[in-house]
Every structure is written in structure tokens, then in C-alpha cells.
Design a protein around this nucleic acid. Structure first.
Length: 556
RNA sequence: UGGGGCGUGGCCAAGUGGCAAGGCGCGGGACUUUGGAUCCCGUAUUCGGAGGUUCGAAUCCUCCCGCCCCAACCA
């Protein structure tokens, strides 16, 4: 991308300005700081793209740092998942893997430094009392009765906190800032709390754990991070971020906030995502309906599409809800260029070619990808009994319908032009099979100048591989489920439809999990890990644009 | 309500005093052995609102309105 066409972002402008003034000596070091208490989702993809992308663009580097300051909520399972997902997305932190817990000792020493400077004190107030003393949005808070303990007493108490002499919640270490500050974060924020819990990395070495604000900026400083990007809700925390760094007199990174990404028809809060998993509404963190990177990957999304999306939605400070259609567009655009085409009949309807010799089999050459000649061709077997899509036959046909109907002609892709000669129905009047005759002169689908509007896909009944196809719809029926009073009521009961009798062309029988294809005229599908030898399972990642569906819908 | 942010077409988003980019979506057309893809064309006399400054304002000033975030020993 050239400088002229590259979207400008205010973050890039800030970095450019820093480079111009020499604030960080031209260095750009960023970090992506997930807390290992959940899996990464599409919103994180944007943050990752910004953190790693800015560093890459300016020839710097991006650290991966786990913000593991709350042992009661974090686990190794999440750590592993997060690293796997970031790598899959296409980013690499090289040797720069860090943990806030790497800095626990340094943080502790710095806390003592603040105590000695009279800028921190041990408080005996309970959680409820701290809240009471903090005041409200409109009323200032009141000082804790323990706010003016001597340095010696504070030091002694804090050391005993570390030594485990007090019970959980009995004491905290607080920064002594301003109980009347209009910014509530500055009303003597808690720096340490007592938690006699085993940490997934430091084990039982500690029973006091630093709060986010006390850990984050100092971790940035230790690592020499220059630009610390985070989401808008931390804007109110920047004064505190700055206060700690200044009070300590250590290297001072710049925190920059941007608006987090929201996508329509889904939720991205860790709480709600966890609720979906635990309530069993989805099959797990990697359910293809989930907006998690694991879910999107299983669904068939590519890292390229996700990165493209992250770049195209831009970076601003304004609240946003990006339409799902935009994400889907990015996937289609990527897969259109790269995915091989196959024929797959999702809802089979038998089609008998009456004048085609019983037992005869022909093979036709099918193009693997019209967008990429190097993808080559493959053979597709044809015989007297085929399956076509149920929706490709209508009796009577609606206006503008180009597909098969009694008496009409249609092209069987790559094969022959056939003419519908009859319909077989069961006692209830349901169409059970369609009969037709083929035109031997149209071999390969060549109409020889004749006008044949419709072309449909098919598979040979005796050669087709039976498979399961999972069709997904949005998890929620409304664009902004977060706005719903009762979010259960906007859950989409039809978010998953399982088709067990799909028939796919033989070439699909050996497809490996993770492979993606375009099923002609239907959509893009990924082979699911639930596939068994001889019985593949496909996930529909996204449908193809469907002009006919629009026409039919418009017609009512 | 005190503080911090944000308001440009249905959704994103450029624009930073000189005559409203682009993408998605939507509508129309061309082409087509995927009703796919591709290619054209159309889609804000107007930038939350009202005043003001200026030859000229989305961009500067004033006031007003709306939305989001903050009162965890979560991050």
C-alpha cells in the first residue's frame, strides 16, 4: 500500500509526531496484553492488528505480555489458546514473551519505594467500606482512618501482608493520591490485595497480587514499551498510569486509547461469551457460531480475511458496530481467489436422465478455480441417475426462474443440457424424483449458441459421497444483542441447521479437516474436525451472494 | 449528576478554513457453462442542532442536544 492510499489513523499520526520530535528516539515498541481468562475473539483481532501492525510498520517490535495479575480467574488453558490464536492470525512476538508475573518482585520493591515516599499506605478498610469512603460520581470521597499511618508502620504492615500474616481481604495497599478527585480512579486506588490463591505461574510464592493499574504501566516501562495502545474505557485510567510512572521516576511510555470493535448480530464481552459456552447454547469456545478466533477458524475464516477486515474497519475513537456483512465480504473476497470449486448437493433430489444408457459413466473436466488457472482441473463422473438441489426444481416455476421445471431446459454444469420430461410424486404429492432427457450434442455443457439461461450443479448418485453439512446463521436475531433487555429472547433458535444427507462429488471424499472449498452456487465451506473417513463434515463459512434469493424475496 | 470521550449517507470511514475520498450495503446495467466472480453507473446541496467569525466553515468561536465509559480488593 502506498502512502497515498493507506488509511490514516490517529495513532499513526501520534507515532509520526513522536518520531519527528524524537520523544522515543524513533523507537516503536508496542505490546498486546491479554489476560488469560478467556479466549481471543474478533475484537482482539483488531487490537492485535494494531499493536503488531504499528510495530511492524515502524520497524519496531510487539511484545506478547500476559496480564496475569488475578490468579483466581486465569489458567494455562487460556494462555495456550491465546498464543495459538495469535500465531494463527499471522503475528509473531519472537522472543518477546512476557508475563506481568515476571515483574512481581520488582513491582513489590517499587511499592515499598512509594511507601517510603509517603505515597502509599496500608488500609484496613473492607471492600464495602472502601466503596463507601470512595464517595460517588458527584460527591467526593473521605480519607480512610488509616490514611496517615507512618512510613514505618506501613512498611511493617506491607511486609507482613507479603508474609501471609493476614487473611484474604483483611488489608490492601493503596496509593495516596486524592480522595476528592473528580476522576474516581485517583481516589486512592488499591495497588495490592491479599489473595491466598495459587497462581498458574508463580504457584504459592505470593499471597498479595497487584491490581491492573499498578501492574500495567510499570510492566510497559520495564519492557521499554513506547506506545501502549488500549481501548477507550482506559482513558480515565491514563492519569493514574501517568501518576505511578511519575511517582516512581521511571521510563514513561505513552498510553493511547482507541475504540474497540463491535460486530453486529453477536456479542464480544467475555462474560457473555463464557455464558454461551457454559449454558450449552453453543458447543464450546470453538463452536463455528462463536466470534472467537477459534470459532471463526473452525468455521472456515482465513487469517488473511480477518487481517483485511481489521484494516478496513479502521481505527478511531468513535463508538462503532460494524455490520456482519462487511466481515463476510472480506471472507468471500479472499476465498473467491483461493478456494477450489466443487459440486455438492446439500438437499438432494433425484434426477433421472431417461435417454442416458443404464450403466454408462462418463467423466467431465471441471475447472478447479476460474479465478486461478494454476489450480488446474479435475474429473467429475456422470451417470444416468443424478442428484440435484431440491431448490433447483420448481413446479410450477415462479416468474424469472431459470432453473428446472416441467418442460424447461437447464444446463448441468460441465455435463449436458437436459430437458425436464416428468415428475415423480409420492402419495402426499411431494416431488420424489424428476425425469429428463439429455442432448448428446451439448457434451461438456456446450449449448452451441442456443440460449440456456440456467446452469445447475449436480452429483452422480452412484459416485457421490454422503456427508454432513452444517449451516450456520447468526447467534442473535437482532443487530445489537447487547441492547436487548433480555438477551435470551434474542438468541436465534435456528443458528444451526444440520443436513445429514448431503451428497458431494467424489473429489471431496478425501478432504482434510481445515480445507476450504467453494461449493458452486452455494457458498464457502470448511472441512470440520468431526469428519470421519468416507463421511466428511462441512461447515458453511459464508454463503455466496444470492441474487435469486433477493429477486424472489422482492416478489414476495 | 462530577469526570472522561464521541457525534460526517443504512454500516464503517477519509477530511484539520477553499468548494463532502473510499469500502460495505443497497438500486440499475453489461458480461457470464456458478442468478458466483468481474466491469460500468447511481446512492450526503450536506457534515448532531442553533447562533457567530470569515470572501469562504464539516473544519475556528459560543451555546445547546444526543450517545458511550467510570463509583470491582476485575482487566
Amino acid at each position: 500500500m502506498t502512502d497515498e492510499t493507506r488509511p490514516s489513523t490517529f495513532i499513526r499520526d501520534i507515532i509520526l509526531e513522536h518520531n519527528r520530535t524524537g520523544r522515543f528516539g524513533g523507537k516503536v515498541i508496542t505490546r498486546f496484553p491479554p489476560e488469560p481468562n478467556g479466549h481471543l475473539h474478533i475484537g482482539h483481532a483488531k487490537a492485535i492488528a494494531i499493536d503488531f501492525g504499528m510495530a511492524r510498520e515502524f520497524g519496531g517490535r510487539c511484545h506478547l505480555r500476559f496480564d496475569d495479575t488475578n490468579p483466581t480467574k486465569e489458567s494455562q488453558e487460556y494462555v495456550d489458546g491465546i498464543m495459538r490464536d495469535i500465531r494463527w492470525l499471522g503475528f509473531d512476538w519472537g522472543p518477546h514473551l512476557y508475563h506481568a508475573s515476571d515483574y512481581f518482585e520488582q513491582l513489590y520493591q517499587w511499592a515499598e519505594q512509594l511507601i517510603r515516599a509517603g505515597k502509599a499506605y496500608v488500609d484496613d478498610l473492607s471492600g464495602d467500606e472502601i466503596r463507601e469512603y470512595r464517595g460517588t460520581l458527584t460527591e467526593p470521597g473521605r480519607p480512610s482512618p488509616h490514611r496517615n499511618r507512618s512510613v514505618e508502620e506501613n512498611l511493617d504492615l506491607f511486609r507482613r501482608m507479603r508474609a501471609g500474616e493476614f487473611e484474604d481481604g483483611a488489608k490492601t495497599l493503596r496509593a495516596k493520591i486524592d480522595m476528592a478527585s473528580p476522576n474516581i480512579n485517583l481516589r486512592d486506588p488499591v495497588m495490592y490485595r491479599i489473595r491466598k490463591a495459587t497462581h498458574q505461574r508463580t504457584g504459592d510464592a505470593w499471597c498479595i497480587y497487584p491490581m491492573y493499574d499498578w501492574a500495567h504501566g510499570q510492566s510497559d516501562s520495564i519492557e521499554g514499551v513506547t506506545h501502549s495502545m488500549c481501548s477507550l474505557e482506559y482513558e480515565d485510567h491514563r492519569p493514574l498510569y501517568d501518576w505511578y510512572l511519575d511517582a516512581l521516576g521511571i521510563f514513561h511510555p505513552q498510553q493511547i486509547e482507541f475504540a474497540r470493535l463491535n460486530v453486529s448480530h453477536t456479542v464480544l464481552s467475555k462474560r457473555k461469551l463464557l455464558q454461551l459456552v457454559e449454558s450449552g447454547r453453543v458447543r464450546g469456545w470453538d463452536d463455528p457460531r462463536m466470534p472467537t478466533l477459534a470459532g471463526l477458524r473452525r468455521r472456515g475464516y482465513t487469517p488473511e480475511a480477518l487481517r483485511d477486515f481489521a484494516e478496513r474497519v479502521g481505527v478511531t475513537k468513535s463508538p462503532n458496530v460494524v455490520e456482519l456483512a462487511y466481515l463476510e465480504h472480506c471472507l468471500r473476497e479472499d476465498l473467491n481467489k483461493r478456494a477450489q470449486r466443487r459440486m455438492a448437493v446439500l438437499r438432494p433430489l433425484k434426477l433421472v436422465v431417461e435417454n442416458y444408457p443404464e450403466g454408462q459413466v462418463e467423466e467431465f473436466e471441471a475447472v478447479n478455480n476460474p479465478e486461478d488457472a494454476s489450480a488446474g482441473t479435475r474429473k467429475v463422473p456422470f451417470s444416468r441417475t443424478l442428484y440435484i438441489e431440491q431448490e433447483d426444481f420448481r413446479d410450477p416455476p415462479p416468474p424469472k426462474y431459470f432453473r428446472l421445471a416441467p418442460g424447461t431446459e437447464v444446463r448441468l454444469r460441465y455435463a449436458y443440457i437436459v430437458k425436464c420430461t416428468g415428475v415423480g410424486k409420492d402419495a402426499a404429492g411431494n416431488v420424489t424424483e424428476v425425469r429428463c432427457t439429455y442432448d448428446p450434442d451439448s457434451r461438456g455443457g456446450d449449448s452451441k449458441g442456443r440460449k440456456v439461461k440456467g446452469t445447475i450443479h449436480w452429483v452422480s448418485a452412484q459416485h457421490a459421497v454422503e456427508s454432513e453439512v452444517r449451516l450456520y446463521d447468526t447467534l442473535f436475531t437482532v443487530p445489537k444483542p447487547d441492547d436487548a433487555e433480555d438477551y435470551e429472547s434474542v438468541l436465534n433458535p435456528a443458528s444451526l441447521e444440520v443436513l445429514t444427507g448431503a451428497r458431494v462429488e467424489p473429489a471431496l471424499g478425501t478432504a482434510a479437516p481445515g480445507e476450504r472449498f467453494q461449493f458452486e452456487r452455494t457458498g464457502y465451506f470448511a472441512v470440520d474436525e468431526d469428519s470421519q473417513p468416507g463421511r466428511p463434515v462441512f461447515n458453511r463459512a459464508v454463503g455466496l451472494r444470492d441474487t435469486w434469493a433477493k429477486i424472489e424475496k422482492a416478489a414476495g
